[in-house]
Design a protein around this nucleic acid. Sequence first.
DNA 1: TTGAAAGCGCTAACAA
DNA 2: TTGTTAGCGCTTTCAA
Lengths: 348, 348
Amino acid sequence: MSKTNQVKRRKVTIIDIANRLGLHPSTVSRALSPDSQKMITSEVVRKVAKAAQELGYVPNSMAAALKKGRSAMVGILVPDLLDPVFPPIIHGAQQELEKAGFTTLVASSYENLAEERVAIQRMRSRLVDGMMIATAKRQDPLIEECLALGIPLVLMYRTVDNLAVSAVVNDDAYGIQTATEHLISLGHCHIAHIAGPQNTSTGYLRHQAFVNTMQAGNLNSNGDLIAFVEQYSEREGYLKLKELMAMKREFTAIVASSDILALGCLDALAEAGLRCPEDVSLTGYNDVPMVNRISPPLTTLQIQQFEMGELAAKTLVELLNNPALTPREIYLRPKLVVRGSTRPPSQI
Amino acid sequence: MSKTNQVKRRKVTIIDIANRLGLHPSTVSRALSPDSQKMITSEVVRKVAKAAQELGYVPNSMAAALKKGRSAMVGILVPDLLDPVFPPIIHGAQQELEKAGFTTLVASSYENLAEERVAIQRMRSRLVDGMMIATAKRQDPLIEECLALGIPLVLMYRTVDNLAVSAVVNDDAYGIQTATEHLISLGHCHIAHIAGPQNTSTGYLRHQAFVNTMQAGNLNSNGDLIAFVEQYSEREGYLKLKELMAMKREFTAIVASSDILALGCLDALAEAGLRCPEDVSLTGYNDVPMVNRISPPLTTLQIQQFEMGELAAKTLVELLNNPALTPREIYLRPKLVVRGSTRPPSQI
DNA sequence: TTGAAAGCGCTAACAA
DNA sequence: TTGTTAGCGCTTTCAA
């Protein structure tokens, strides 16, 4: 009766397998681990595998992690899971990491420093072997801290100033240059820029590139037509463009620092009775899903999100295998996709 | 020299804290855990907290998990991280779970059974205390297995047939009924349905509701105007509607089983030279971000994704606290949002 | 090629 | 209120 009691089904361990087979637990452990399998008779390996299968053995990776000091987990930290830029990056990273035997811990900080700190703490307490971070500020004490603690790190999408750390990012300067040149070549002279947060590499580099490209084209970019948002959100894009328009600044085109901001701009334009692209042209950044279907279809920069995650994961895996590896930065080239939101200015 | 060697910075443990304070490790453990803190002098608690802070102590939750037999981790399994329906659900769940002290393991199966099995196995091996699953098929051996193993489970978004398991889902029947009635009330008589996979509760229930509502309105729904997709994807929506049109079936409106399918329909209509909504009205399901901005803005059903994740998480936490809890099903009411993609038929 | 034994860091009876 | 002790399940030296 109590023998066949199934109520409290104890978890199956290697000891159960060892007992059933009359082997020692350590032998079972070796037979189960691909690395040490070679030291074991293939006969035994087979029997162990069979018994494990039959007993429904599930390895306890906590115990293994505790013993080995490595958890085979990697933390992925993004600013916002709800921003469609990030899921494909996560997807690329997960796919690559799983191939290498890692489980991922995904967290979203929602651009909140305290959340970020908690998330990192949580990951550390879970003993992640390394982290992939897409929340970097240009000056980022949290990242500095991780580095000082010797946590293997790879940055994605955003990078930091002056820190020796691996990163896989877009070539943002190139991207915005392309977009700006596109507008200039269409004949636009008065181009506004809705710039992203300047404490992020994306916002900063894109803004720099905008200014540089305007100057290279001998066009005014003295700042009258530039507004800075606090966050990448529709609302901020909307508000900052409204402010710009309230100041009666004249422009025939807008370079937005991201698609999300561009959407906000679209709202502000509509509210002001301006049509896009008839009255004002507009470019975005990221080519997030569905911006090709909105009205008007958005001219934007297509980025390689999946590849970004994948490359960052590969970089991290290398780093884990060889902690002495020199940090490397990889730049991915975005591609301008011209759609309906840009056209030559009407009132030249 | 070797004393101050910082190269191999050993992890700080409760033993280090105990040594520094001349206490016993178990005392430190108790002082650190909110539950057992009450047994300890507040004086000691304070000193321990201070020392922990100073030494940079990070609890090793693996060790705790191994000892306690509980990991404080919960697995979240979704069909597709890239489908915008799921991130808000995940977000809601994570928020709630973190409040309760759980870390989440997020995995995406990409509608692939093998992937799903691997993901579940991985979660089990990580000793998750429970799982939240959004990949359910109506008949789902994997879920049955988990249940048989006694793994605390809550389903989200999709549910199963005939299984005693908690679930938080949309009231899909109500949703599709609303959409269909909306079209009928606009005067449409010949309404097509692009039905989701019939092995999912969403696809099945929505299809049933469509048929029932049509019959209730004394309209023909004998199947001539119904096409079934294999997956929720733009491509499938596009292909299946094309097939329907190739058969020269006449209709003035389409009820798509999801927004994603509706997008595919839009492409198929455009390709056939049909305008939406002038020639054909269209409804979606989910009110995914940006479908309000596409051309035409999509009439669809707004669902409560965040709340779904949140409620499911609450349910799971309750279940973990009381494993004997009777499974409960929660239905969330979607809300019809009428936009530009629906209007009365022109050729009545 | 396999067995023996120790220990990863923590918690929880039990004792004091 | 604090200390003692044992052990969670696994890996890995060391020995046989």
